[in-house]
Design a protein around this nucleic acid. Structure first.
Lengths: 195, 195
DNA sequence: CTTTGATATGAACGTTTGTTCATTTAACAC
DNA sequence: GTGTTAAATGAACAAACGTTCATATCAAAG
């Protein structure tokens, strides 16, 4: 009983990745079996290997796609004139982007240790690249005298941790809208960098 | 070949927990087998069950112990006079305490989803209690007019995320001492709360 | 109507998993 | 020196794991 109507590679492939994304985020990579993913897709376990080389590649694909989208989205983001404008743009962008895909964010932060050395290096490089974007803004702000920072690398790590932290507590339909949250976090970021 | 010299319950028990702590932090709860833990301790897998009911209890014990120690240590911490003093005390304490036990911190943040519902509720309650400590400080500062906050719960989550983030990048023997890091983070926290 | 090729099945593989238990060992009390 | 008992062994269990593969199915092309 194969090849039901509408069951093509272009349909099943994305469904496999979507199921893996949700299950990995919920239970963790190591705790999720290929059979669980298959059941979620409505297929036998063996069929998954038409869409992924192995379980490790499935995880890596999800993480690399997420990081690629993150960098591409930030590249497309308008950044304003001053360094302070750019910092505000970054803060709001980071919160918005991360709140839009909590599962991918969760995986990207929690499953690094389940990557092979090679795959880990690739993801780590992309993360560094993203951190570098913020550091460049802070450096520009420092040089222009708009910001008062004693350590750019440290400040960038602190800001990213603070912003990403929103994902741990924000719930849709809660007390605050996304915009309200972004407003308040921007206030805090601005205060933290002495501007 | 049992009961080698010095192999008593009081020795092996802690060694089991220490091995589990290190291995869980390194590879994740689900990816570590009881046999791996046993090998690290120098014992057969069956012997572990003299010291823990099952694998789940081993994880729960580590997390509850960590949270208990966190709350007890903060209770013992001198907090100064003003709310601003207390906020500074909290910031420095949080960084110091967390940098002293990176493995336990890692587990406490990453393995929540591997707890049973009941165990999760217990740990979550302790975490809420700790967050409540910071919220109380912020509220006091707000009431005394020392701080300028638009949302206490949000500010407390932002501060904790920022402070805990130190664990993700700080390396012993690096560019900055723990004290220097704590100094700079306190500056940022102070700025973030508008003081 | 036949052929083709992509899509899926389902059984099988060798390992590994968490946990239990009858048995053995050795340190200590008498 | 004997008996007691806590501490550890090592074999065993059924279940689940990731992955492979011969086979079946069915949509579309000629």
């Amino acid at each position: 009983m194969a090849r039901k109507t509408g069951s093509h590679s272009e349909i099943t492939g994305p469904r496999v990745r979507a199921a893996a994304l949700t299950l990995f985020a919920q239970h963790g990579f190591a705790a999720v079996s290929m059979r669980q993913i298959a059941r979620e897709v409505g297929v036998q376990a063996g069929a998954l290997y038409l869409y992924t080389k192995d379980k490790q590649s499935l995880l890596f694909d999800l993480m690399r796609t997420h990081m690629d989208e993150l960098l591409a989205a930030w590249a497309d983001e308008p950044k304003g004139q001053s360094a302070l404008d750019a910092l505000q743009a970054f803060s709001r962008f980071h919160i918005r982007f991360h709140l839009e895909r909590p599962e991918a964010v969760f995986i990207a932060y929690m499953e690094l240790r389940n990557l092979t050395d090679e795959n880990f290096a690739a993801i780590e490089a992309l993360r560094r690249q993203y951190e570098g974007e913020l550091e460049a803004i802070l450096r520009a702000g420092q040089d222009a005298g708009e910001l008062d920072l004693s350590d750019i690398r440290l400040s960038s790590m602190a800001i990213i941790a603070m912003l990403t932290g929103v994902n741990t507590w924000y719930r849709e339909g809660g007390r605050l809208s996304r915009e309200a949250v972004a407003d308040r976090y921007w206030d805090m970021v601005r205060g933290a960098v002495g501007a």
